[in-house]
Simulated scan of single mutants.
Amino acid sequence: MKTTLVPGLEHTFSFKVSPEKTVPHVYPESDLFRDMPHVFATAFMVGFMEWACMEALRPYLDDDECTLGTMINVTHQAATPPGMQVTAHVRCLEVEGKRTVWEIEARDEVEVIGKGTHERFTVNKDKFAARVATKGRTP
């Protein structure tokens, strides 16, 4: 990771909510999920928040690196129907070696829909893939 990454970095990222990002699509195998309202799912909102942080980090990574989410603490305080655009504003709070901590606020076209904090670690892609492959071979 490049040493130019410092706390205070801000980034804004937007996404249009599609019907596939609504609650019934989180676990379509479950009737409990299938019967829920067709609004932006918390699970997909969390992924969207992570995506915004990954985009903010992208220019600071070497080609052999990626970042992994290791902690997320967010609220989901308002429903968003499909077709609306959501925007995440992220701000880097901490940089400690390969660890970064982010403050996140997500809004739809009307109001704040969620906010909180997120931690990511930068890893070497090949080393991480090798570690996961070894774990997958463990009986």
Results as ranks from 00 to 15, higher is better:
K2I: 09
T4N: 15
T4L: 14
L5P: 13
L9Y: 13
E10V: 14
H11Y: 13
H11R: 08
T12L: 00
K16S: 12
P19V: 13
P19S: 05
K21T: 14
K21D: 15
V23N: 05
P28K: 10
P28R: 13
S30N: 12
D31W: 07
D31E: 14
F33L: 05
D35H: 12
D35N: 14
V39W: 13
V39M: 01
A41V: 01
T42Y: 01
A43C: 01
A43G: 02
F44D: 00
M45F: 02
M45W: 02
M45D: 06
G47I: 01
G47R: 03
F48G: 08
F48Y: 04
W51K: 05
A52G: 03
A52C: 04
M54W: 06
M54C: 15
E55C: 15
L57T: 00
P59K: 01
Y60A: 02
Y60T: 05
L61Q: 02
L61I: 04
L61H: 00
D63V: 14
D64E: 13
D64S: 11
C66T: 14
C66H: 11
C66L: 12
T67Q: 03
T67M: 00
G69L: 09
T70N: 07
T70I: 14
I72C: 09
Q77W: 03
Q77G: 10
A79F: 02
A79C: 13
V86W: 03
H89T: 08
H89E: 12
R91H: 01
C92S: 06
E94K: 10
E94A: 04
E94G: 03
V95M: 10
V95G: 15
G97I: 06
K98C: 05
R99Q: 04
T100H: 10
E105A: 10
A106N: 03
R107W: 02
R107E: 01
R107K: 10
R107L: 05
V110M: 14
V112P: 09
I113V: 06
K115T: 03
T117D: 07
H118Q: 12
E119V: 14
K127E: 10
F128R: 11
F128G: 00
F128M: 01
F128Y: 13
A130V: 06
R131W: 02
T134F: 04
T134V: 08
K135G: 12
G136T: 15
T138R: 04
P139V: 05
P139S: 10
